[in-house]
Write a protein that binds this DNA or RNA. Sequence first.
DNA 1: TTGAGTTTGTGAATATGATCACAAGTTCAA
DNA 2: TTGAACTTGTGATCATATTCACAAACTCAA
Lengths: 213, 213
Amino acid sequence: MYKKIPKNTIHRLPLYLSVLEQLAEESQNQEEFFHSVDLEKLLNIKNSVIRKDLSYFGEFGVKGKGYNIVSLKTALKEILDINVIKKTVIIGCGNIGTAIIKYPYFTKINLEIVAGFDVDPKIIKQKINQTPVYHIDRLVDFLNKEKIQFVILAVPVHASKFILQDLITKTDIHGIINFTPISLKVPKHIKVINSYISAKILEMYFYLKNTNA
Amino acid sequence: MYKKIPKNTIHRLPLYLSVLEQLAEESQNQEEFFHSVDLEKLLNIKNSVIRKDLSYFGEFGVKGKGYNIVSLKTALKEILDINVIKKTVIIGCGNIGTAIIKYPYFTKINLEIVAGFDVDPKIIKQKINQTPVYHIDRLVDFLNKEKIQFVILAVPVHASKFILQDLITKTDIHGIINFTPISLKVPKHIKVINSYISAKILEMYFYLKNTNA
DNA sequence: TTGAGTTTGTGAATATGATCACAAGTTCAA
DNA sequence: TTGAACTTGTGATCATATTCACAAACTCAA
């Protein structure tokens, strides 16, 4: 447990890891080093920010030499708790939900999508990439039995309200990754992370309109 | 053109709009008002933040009374430039790309996905939801001819490098919405907005590990 | 018409995050 | 073995964002 990590630092940690994975793949040598300035060039994040971000978690570098690719990668995996396999479910197996189930990079972060849930009988009982899809009536039981810690919510807006209610009152989940375009009202022991696609597009609209291009 | 809008303010604008859309749907009365405190409860964003955010763009409220739902919604749409129809393309029509093409909420924000691009002959020449899919060789010409302002990039990592190069050197796009798990190196007249799904999951890992649950 | 009750919009104060700049440790060539 | 050249890690400084708190403006009931 660390004391006071800035939110933006947490946002950046996955980016660092992502670049390190690439560097590790490209490098021949296990003992290869790199500098915070190299990372700055790859990520457009100031080297001072990178060093400060890492400093919240310990000292990973060698003065005068830099960071060892492999050992920093290992450290970041530890910080982000990637080494423990996590199980989650997708609630809503429409387009977005299905795409997420098929997303190939989750194995890299030890995420296992153990089930999908939907109401459409055409989808239920099929398997999407070996992942079974059940009726949403079975969601609460499943989460409790399997001790799922967080879920991925990808249902249409109108369905989200009652599902959310069930999640809050009848299960013990601690996190929701929300692909729904609405903001979820949850008790504070539940962490919501939003991935509202339209918001990204609208941000783009704003920038396009307001830059002297 | 506004002067100095905080980044976080821009992130929040789409959320305000999203809530207002909901409120507008639910309200019977065109003349209904609401307060910043109501919004605070719906979004978990402090009312003072909401008021300050709005104040960067003008005065939309009535002292002692609040904001008119419809007119604030209209104002936000103007700020986010939603009223003008925007055209974009999806580069990479795998799972994520296809899901995005089918995403139903884009009509709400006047976004038209006019084409998809891929290299897989099985996908090319099919239509996904009325959207034609072309070979990626035709991307540059298409973007130039149709004067596309921004693209959505959803290709596998290995493909992104040369596509990015083409986008930068041979087209006049000003924005990339990046679903790729790597950070794109672009000249500064191009705005990149990242939507790296694994990052959201890793953030969740971090919070789950570091909260005394 | 009045005035108590609201709620906005916004400067000022506070808190948070980014940047700077440099001591301290390490490397490595001579 | 020495010392110039690096690069980290981190207080101090600067910049940005949030919160506070209140005047100003409006509402509405009496």
